[in-house]
Design a protein around this nucleic acid. Structure first.
Lengths: 209, 209
DNA sequence: GAAGTAATTGATCTAGCGATCAATACAGAC
DNA sequence: GTCTGTATTGATCGCTAGATCAATTACTTC
């Protein structure tokens, strides 16, 4: 029976439509993870046909990489803003630990855990993941290097320490995701570990949690 | 043309065949990751039909969970053996860090990164992941608690510290996997962080790397 | 107001997934 | 040597994925 009523068409400028599609994809990824990014899921979210999504996106792999990049970039900017509000290097490192472990970022944790896994089958995504990791590393290295100049920290390898700090925090977030536990209670202890890594006086990195 | 030559049949005892299938699946997972565990991939590896794999495995989700459990359990036993060879708690913690970060476990890192990601869509796997995480935690907690009794460590929460140590190490391994970098160079620094966490004298946890 | 451009649809193709099952042929019991 | 139970095959179903494309229709332009 119900001879399908033809879907009303809304014709938009290519740039606008393309932006909408990326926005829809980003929303899907945020809510359901990167692996939920299918041609059809994005289309439904954007209120269009899967064919149109494909028309604007040469391949799904590319879209996934793009969305990953966008999401993480936004997070890095957020954290950058929070961190730069703190007065000195120890306070900044504390603020970094606080924000990254306050449990308000579970959606993003899902995104990059899936990103790590999926990157093994997608060159585009692998590239994106490596690129965003370097953003994080640069952000943290800046803080550590600044602390060294002040004399608050004393490591001779801020770059390496930065990698280690990120790895630690990411690992704890991923673990909490898998366990369904809260990351917050690890913040204080993580600050102690961070002091050892950057060579700061014990207790000099403040965390609020 | 080529009327397909019928495949020769080898009839085996159910228990034997079942074991073969699990073994084949484990091999596939080790070499290509958990996400490569398909009915057909396992069948090809075992030299049988996909139908037979399905016959012995009620569902693929279960097989994945089973393989995950087997692989991680084997790793835990390996590490347990290595660790118990060390004379005291600090040496054991050092040995733990050494083995887990010597780069010889990349295949396993792939397995549990994928495990974390896939667990979100498979209850059976989620259960397995949580179970194996607790195994790890128990192993590490034992070491930390022993160190506390000796006086080498001084934390009042060995269980929590154990979770944190595991999270750290896992995160660093996952990061190295994604970056294509070597984890080994983080071992020494990780030992310093571990000392801060367990409350040990700086430099008291030995690492060989 | 007409014409042409191109954004959009909807149907379709191929591929791979887990799962199911009638038919087959192997191995052990007698 | 024969029989019988069942391990095993091979074909198939239903589903979802990415991708492609002719047909359609909504805009812009003149």
């Amino acid at each position: 029976m119900s001879s399908t009523v033809p879907r009303p068409r809304t014709r938009k400028a290519p740039a606008e439509r393309a932006a909408e599609i990326v926005a829809a994809a980003t929303a899907v990824a945020r809510e359901q993870g990167l692996s939920a990014l299918t041609l059809r899921a994005v289309a439904e979210r954007a209120g269009i046909t899967s064919g149109l999504v494909a028309h604007y996106q040469p391949s799904m792999d590319d879209l996934v990489a793009r969305v990953y990049t966008d999401l993480v970039e936004e997070e890095v900017r957020d954290v950058e803003r929070v961190v730069s509000a703190a007065p000195d290097a120890p306070a900044r490192l504390g603020a970094l630990i606080d924000t990254l472990m306050d449990g308000a970022r579970d959606e993003l944790t899902v995104v990059w855990v899936e990103g790590w896994a999926m990157a093994r089958r997608s060159d585009a995504l692998a590239l994106a993941v490596r690129g965003q990791m370097q953003r994080w590393q640069a952000l943290v290295e800046d803080i550590v290097a600044a602390g060294c100049r002040t004399g608050a920290f004393s490591t001779t390898e801020p770059g390496e320490v930065a990698w280690e700090l990120i790895g630690m925090i990411d690992g704890l977030n991923a673990q909490s995701l898998a366990r369904g536990a809260d990351t917050t209670r690890f913040a204080r202890r993580t600050a102690r570990a961070a002091e050892a890594l950057v060579g700061a006086r014990p207790g000099s990195i403040p965390v609020s949690a």
